[in-house]
Write a protein that binds this DNA or RNA. Structure first.
Lengths: 138, 138
DNA sequence: CCTTGACGTTCCAGCCACTGGAAGCCTTAT
DNA sequence: ATAAGGCTTCCAGTGGCTGGAACGTCAAGG
């Protein structure tokens, strides 16, 4: 099948399919006229990639996961270790975001948000003390 | 002061100071020899930018916040609306991440992670049913 | 047989917010 | 005089695409 159908079946934009080929993730055959020719197996791999990307795996991770996916002699431990690492990464990001959210929410609540110039948000950003959200400052 | 000192005082890399000038955020004067010459006010603005970026505000937001910071006749409502919008954005991202984390954690727990090829993580990514994490699929 | 239009192809540019590095100028110390 | 270090500019790369231009291919209709 041609790129548009593979795109439709995999749920990825055709542009992305071309990009994945460019970086060597999925390399479909070519017809005599130069058109890409995707097979069902390619579509499966593309779907796999779409879901892995949806799960937040990097392209580098996806490359490894895909090769494990293709490898019948894989060890699930290898898959799990990639996933565990990714999970730790996500947890760290969630922690950051929660901290961020707490600080920002506190500022938003403190700001009366009217016509006056006085503003705790700007005060905080400009470094006024009293917020305790500075990690370390010389 | 020259760029290295402004960088040290603001807590930003010198490269970033040059970049901020390039995009028109902070434009220090120049000495006769072409060197950038930062003043204390510039350093304050740089610190402001550093903290705002730390809070996750985009450069576009920072630009607006900085102009409000500089404007003595600002209305705190304008600041607050930027912050509220950002907070909503963060909340949405946290929600995404939490969903992601739940799905990934479930898969990681389900994977025995030994020498066998059988792997629920790959099963899920390849589209095997039973995970319920597909938003909509044709 | 020719045209039209929908596809396909490649390549280049841009997004965000920097970051690294090269090549060359300026200043200070020896 | 020279060496070291900091300053300047400009170009390229990061990740993961996305948009667009310019051109090739193919099936259908007149």
């Amino acid at each position: 099948m041609k790129v548009a159908e593979a795109a439709a079946r995999s749920g990825l934009p055709a542009k992305t399919l071309r990009y994945y080929e460019e970086i060597g993730l999925i390399t479909p055959r070519r017809r005599d006229n130069g058109y890409r020719d995707y097979e069902d197996g390619d579509v499966n791999r593309l779907r796999f990639l779409r879901r892995a990307r949806q799960m937040g795996f990097s392209i580098a991770d996806c490359r490894q996961l895909l090769s494990l996916f293709d490898d019948q002699d894989r060890e699930s431990a290898d898959v799990k270790s990639i996933a565990v690492r990714h999970l730790a990464h996500i947890d760290a990001r969630i922690e950051e975001m929660n901290l961020l959210r707490r600080n920002l929410a506190r500022l938003v609540e403190a700001c009366h948000g009217d016509g006056r110039a006085d503003c705790p948000i700007l005060d905080d950003l400009s470094g006024r003390p009293g917020c305790g959200c500075e990690p370390e400052e010389t």
